[in-house]
Write a protein that binds this DNA or RNA. Structure first.
Lengths: 350, 350
DNA sequence: ATGAAAGCGCTAACAA
DNA sequence: TTGTTAGCGCTTTCAT
């Protein structure tokens, strides 16, 4: 348990100064061959390894990017979409020799988490301007890139065109004759606030509203559920209410919710999509599900990569354009079918 | 882009000393009400937030745990077993207000990665003593807990009883009459070295050998494949060779390999388990696969949690027992069936 | 209750 | 080429 060998120890032992030692490790060209060799030899003998904590502090860099998660690590990593984003971030971090730090909201406080973070830049997921993360980051001079945040001039945010994606998603159900729809939303802490109006949830809702209007769906035929967490289990919990409302189609903002819902249906002998259709959002690795989920594909990996790249552009002082929209696409799976006939007749001339 | 406000700024602005400021934030009892209030008020006005980098450096703590991965972040997070371990680690980190840093081997060098890491403790996955990570950690005074490492006195390692688990896995195939077996191993960098003999791969191989011996299987009826990476794609690549060798059962050290193999089989009209059986290892969330995979369940989440707890025991100076074995179990899925009759007759009186 | 000052281990501007 | 020394921003001992 002996204390770690320091640069001072090595300086003394080798008969050189701390500067020389530092140069021996970080700037060979600024020191003579002989000195360098001697120093390194003694370093080896003493088992000296420069302390990265001190080095980073002195350099003012941490060689680490932070990933601010919307929920617990435990919960987030249950969502393959988030895992995919993490993979994208990790890829780019490695290319730059950086580590990737997972930062969950601490004791339910994002602020405390952000205040305590020791990273060169923070990539957030699912936070909005109104959450105050942006201004806090600003205050402590911390570069910020958002994923699935609000589309705002102030900060870079990597997004798909959520409004159109949601429109497309719902429309693919409406086209098949569905008229009684359940919509399952992501948790939206700031939905109420004015600034939240530009958030991802709000944008998707706008897309839904437009689609509903375009197809003349009446308000009373739409049920809206706001999940308290984006999990499989939460999906299962919602399923019963959905069925009770007589919807013929469920539109979710997350595949993982959709899976939960489908699993509940299966346990209750409700056929998907014969009795009720389900269409998800994300397109998490569906190769491993029983049936291919009908869904909207949004490239998590790509989003992560893009965000991290933007971050390094920022860090390395490169010019940054506004973050580009990442493309989405429709995945035709096996969980979306035509609306059941009986229901359809209820709404007549269609 | 103004520089961040420092403790010195605040000291000057508030008319107090740096000490007072520090106390105002970290030790209210050591300062007068009035002083504290005044300081905090000015802090607020100046937008002062203590810099965690300096604070951590000064305290000699990072409030971060490192997770040393066996491969790229990108690749590792493709493996749900590893994601599960990460979740377990993350859970405990959060309980302690810690962040979790993902540390991949940098430029293919674990050493460089470990040398540069700024964490309070390092949890490794899949490394052995012979990889030298242990002694390096020792050298820089970095607490270490291993997952799936060697069973060794020197370091704590969280494991299941891999030898018996492997035995059980293979035996469940042998019991069903399989006599021509393919074994797909994890990548094993240090399998050759003497110390590697206690590693996870070696222990499982020992289990396999014992099972093969107990059931009198001849060497020439066993095919051994060592994957270069633990991925779905690698599994698919191996599948063709497996079929070519005429095995009736594939035993893999990882579910993800098994899934890859099965997917290849399906694409080539080979029925699982009618034509060939597959039994995996890990039991990654099989709820989302087409058919339940026959496999050995090892609790990744539990391993992560246990490892992190041991780490905090270490960090907080608690006594630590030797790491306990985490229990495994057999999952009876739908991909392991009796050996095909034709093959069986080849090997007669059974 | 308060403050001066000495660290923490390293980097790097500056002087020799 | 080499060494002296002043930071980096915070914590904390030890006087006062």
């Amino acid at each position: 348990m002996g204390k770690r060998v320091t640069i001072a120890d090595l300086a003394k032992a080798s008969g050189y100064s701390k500067t020389a030692v530092s140069f021996a490790f970080n700037a060979p060209e600024r020191i003579s061959q002989a000195a360098r060799e001697k120093i390194l030899k003694v370093a080896d003998r003493l088992n000296y390894i420069p302390d990265p904590r001190a080095r980073n502090f002195s350099l003012g860099r941490q060689f680490t990017l932070g990933f601010l998660l919307p929920q617990d690590i435990e919960t987030c990593l249950l969502n393959p979409y988030i895992v995919d984003v993490t993979r994208g971030l990790g890829r780019v971090c490695q290319e730059h020799g950086y580590m990737l730090s997972l930062v969950p909201p601490l004791n339910d406080s994002v602020y405390e988490a952000v205040k305590g973070v020791t990273v060169d830049g923070l990539v957030t997921m699912g936070y909005l301007l109104s959450d105050g993360v942006g201004s806090l980051a600003d205050q402590i001079n911390l570069p910020l890139v958002m994923i699935d945040g609000g589309e705002d001039e102030t900060f870079l945010s990597v997004n798909i065109d959520d409004e159109n994606a949601a429109y497309t998603q719902l429309e693919s159900a409406l086209k098949l004759g569905h008229r009684k729809i359940s919509i399952v939303s992501l948790p939206a802490p700031s939905l109420q606030s004015a600034e939240g109006a530009r958030g991802i949830v709000a944008r998707r809702l706008a897309g839904y509203r437009r689609a509903l209007a375009d197809y003349g769906i009446r308000d009373e035929d739409v049920n809206f559920f706001s999940a308290s967490a984006t999990t499989y289990a939460e999906g299962q919990l919602t399923a019963a209410s959905i069925v009770a409302r007589g919807s013929t189609c469920v539109v979710t903002m997350s595949d993982i919710q959709a899976y939960g819902i489908i699993s509940w249906m299966e346990c209750h002998d409700i056929r998907v999509p014969e009795d009720i259709s389900v269409i998800g959002f994300d397109n998490i690795d569906s190769f491993c599900f029983r049936r291919r989920l009908s869904t909207i594909s949004q490239p998590g990996f790509e989003k992560g990569r893009t965000a991290a790249r933007l971050m390094f552009d920022l860090l390395e002082g490169r010019k940054v354009e506004k973050a580009p929209l990442v493309p989405f696409s429709v995945i035709e799976g096996e969980t979306l079918g035509p609306a059941p006939q009986e229901q359809r007749s209820n709404y007549g001339n269609n």
